[in-house]
């Protein structure tokens, strides 16, 4: 067919461009598959592809392939991974806090405690903002506003049950109001909720710091606090913890192996991930992407997953999204 011949020509061009970057690593002969439980272009996909790039560039794996399995906040991909990667020495999964929440609120039979944690990789702070014309100047002002009238305190942020919603609920609870009464208007992403903030339709907004950084720096939005436990260099807003609220919430991403991976297989995967994460290449990627390093080794990550699972469940229950 003629059109396919045309494609052949195009493909040759694509190929010649692509081949600049692909170099073959031989140091180890791991042939890995990373499952990104999201469509191409999203956060977990870019984390997977960055890891792929770094693992191959540092020679910690011979080949790495990324497979996208989108659906239902990652639970479709997780279920498939649990089925296919059981005991497998060469399958990995990238996931994060959203998947913890999604498996609870979707009443999914699978969750992240069923796979083998390898390492926590990145963690991005969330930020709480108000519009520049808002009478609310500090986080205490916001708490007072919530206490006065929780219904008229309109929050905007990402999808229902996601990290943004959880943070808003935690703040509402800390203000002494019932988190089930929170007036949280969910948008599909940081873009639409930002428009609602700039348009003055909401009292307060929550998003990943990076997504709204431009508006915060230009003064269109006033950042009241970040949700990271410690202050971050280059971010003026102080952590909630430093402002007297015992709240921390980090949008973390980590890497997992399949269920029942043990012994030498597990050690090989651990070593490959650890060596990659400690490489210059990985640090360069973090910097380029604007991701904060939130590395935790296997054992620490394992306890962390268990505690996040319990914590997220209790918050989602308090806002009525889980039973």
């Amino acid at each position: 067919m003629r059109n396919f011949m045309k494609y052949g020509l195009m493909a040759a061009i694509v190929g010649s461009v692509l081949s600049f970057g692909s170099l073959s690593a031989t140091a180890q002969d791991l042939e890995l598959t990373i499952t990104a439980p999201a469509g191409a272009g999203g956060g977990w996909d870019s984390a997977s592809r960055s890891l792929q790039e770094a693992m191959m560039a540092t020679g910690n794996a011979k080949s790495v392939q990324v497979v996208n399995v989108p659906g239902a906040g990652g639970t479709v991909g997780l279920a498939q991974f649990i089925g296919s990667a059981k005991g497998s020495p060469n399958q990995l999964l990238v996931a994060g806090i959203t998947l913890v929440g999604a498996s609870i609120s979707n009443k999914s039979p699978v969750n992240l405690t069923q796979v083998t944690p390898l390492a926590r990789l990145t963690g991005d702070p969330l930020v709480i903002v108000v519009s520049k014309d808002s009478p609310i100047k500090t986080i205490d002002d916001l708490l007072a506003t919530i206490k006065t009238d929780v219904a008229k305190t309109i929050w905007v942020g990402g999808s229902a049950g996601g990290a943004d919603h959880i943070l808003a609920a935690l703040v509402t609870k800390a203000a002494g109001a019932d988190p089930a009464k929170i007036n949280y208007v969910a948008y599909s992403g940081g873009g639409e909720s930002l428009a609602a903030m700039l348009g003055g339709q909401a009292t307060a907004g929550v998003s990943g710091y990076g997504e709204w950084e431009g508006q915060i720096k230009s003064g269109d939005l006033r950042a009241l606090a970040i949700s990271y436990p410690e202050p971050i260099e280059g971010i003026e807003a102080k952590p909630l913890k430093a402002q007297g609220l015992d709240i921390e919430l980090v949008n973390w991403r980590g890497i997992f192996a399949g269920p029942d991976v043990q012994g030498a297989d597990l050690d090989a995967l651990k070593a490959a991930v650890d060596n990659t994460v400690k490489s210059e290449q990985w640090q360069a990627i973090l910097k380029a992407r604007g991701w904060s390093d939130y590395y935790a080794p296997t054992d620490e990550f394992k306890t962390f997953i268990a505690s996040e699972n319990d914590r997220v469940r209790s918050i989602l229950t308090s806002i009525g999204l889980a039973d």
Binding site: A11, V14, G15, L18, Q65, V66, N68
Partner: peptide, 16 residues
């Protein structure tokens, strides 16, 4: 056609 499409997607576009 199948082989051609497969190679195009898997090798060039890295879509599995």
């Amino acid at each position: 056609i199948g082989v051609f499409v497969f190679l195009l997607f898997n090798k060039l576009l890295t879509l599995a």
